[in-house]
Simulated assay, not measured.
Amino acid sequence: MPKHHDIVDLYDSLFEMESQFKKDASYPIHKRMNFGTAYHDIYDFLLSKINVQNKTILDAGCGVGFGSFLLAKSGAEHVKGISISSKEIQRASEVSKQSQTNNVSFEVATFDDTQPNQYDLIICIESLKHTLNIEQSFNQLLAGLKPNGILCIVDDFFDENHNKTSMAFQKDWHLNYLISLSDLKMGTEKFELTITDLNKWMYPKSLWKINFKLLLFKIFKRNSNFTKLFRGGLLLDKLYAQKQMKYLMVQIKKR
């Protein structure tokens, strides 16, 4: 069973790996999408769907702050970015200081640290699945919304039929479970739900190429954190190629 330090180690390793290849100090840590010329990335797409003007926003799982800065520059009153990785938060804070962005702040924190009735908008981009307790964290995020506030979750949603691939993916990425729509339980009288399927904008993956790369990992039998990250990413690609995953944007509005 994964522990808190396992998730921290995963995010720290992701930071160390990504920062070697990314030129910008602040960069997106999420899927590359094929939006054509319509949008640059998932945050740009989100901004076309949700008004952030003068909003108080929590970017829950902010990485090194790419999305937080974009939201702050798009008219938000204030954006707070949180991550369990002190390395990510240190980088985000350094960029914030250098850019003199006054309406954004960063903090090492978990979803469960969210204070009640604080935010007009809470965003979780590919981060909620890493929580150790989905029900507890989900309810804490909902409680953090002000009246008419929106919780926006963008993540990999599983069809709940487990196989060797899904279990290996969970193990490599230290996941307690794979998030599904059935995990998002709320009182329908208090919330309204909007679901957008993002699969059509994802780059297609070749199953035989994925299997070939996974075979190489099996042959060389390396098991470092970097190996787990790469192999886990391939396993996730395989779940998408097998139609067991959907990339969804779920908006939950508090009435």
Rank of each mutant, 00 (worst) to 15 (best):
P116H: 05
D237L: 06
E126K: 07
T56G: 03
N51W: 09
H5N: 13
K221A: 14
V52P: 06
W173Q: 01
E16K: 14
S48G: 13
L184K: 05
K49F: 00
G75A: 06
M202E: 09
K97R: 15
T196W: 09
K238M: 08
K55L: 02
F15W: 12
E135N: 13
Q244K: 12
L151P: 03
A168N: 14
G149W: 00
I42L: 13
W208D: 13
G233Q: 02
F157E: 08
L46H: 00
K213Q: 14
L71Y: 09
Y119D: 00
M249L: 15
K87A: 09
Q98C: 06
G232P: 05
G63A: 00
S68K: 02
F138L: 14
K80P: 01
Q244F: 08
D113R: 02
K97H: 13
N211F: 04
H4T: 11
K55E: 00
F158I: 00
Q115D: 07
I123M: 10
S224G: 05
D183A: 09
H4Y: 13
L46M: 15
E192C: 08
Y119A: 06
Q136K: 15
I210C: 06
L132K: 05
H162K: 12
L151G: 02
A25M: 13
F157T: 01
N117A: 09
T196H: 12
G233A: 10
K87F: 12
Q170C: 15
M33R: 07
L207H: 01
Q115T: 05
F106Q: 01
A168L: 12
A143H: 07
T110W: 12
I134S: 01
L151C: 00
Y43E: 04
N163G: 04
F66P: 00
M1K: 12
G149L: 04
L141P: 00
S74E: 01
K164T: 11
D112I: 07
L193V: 13
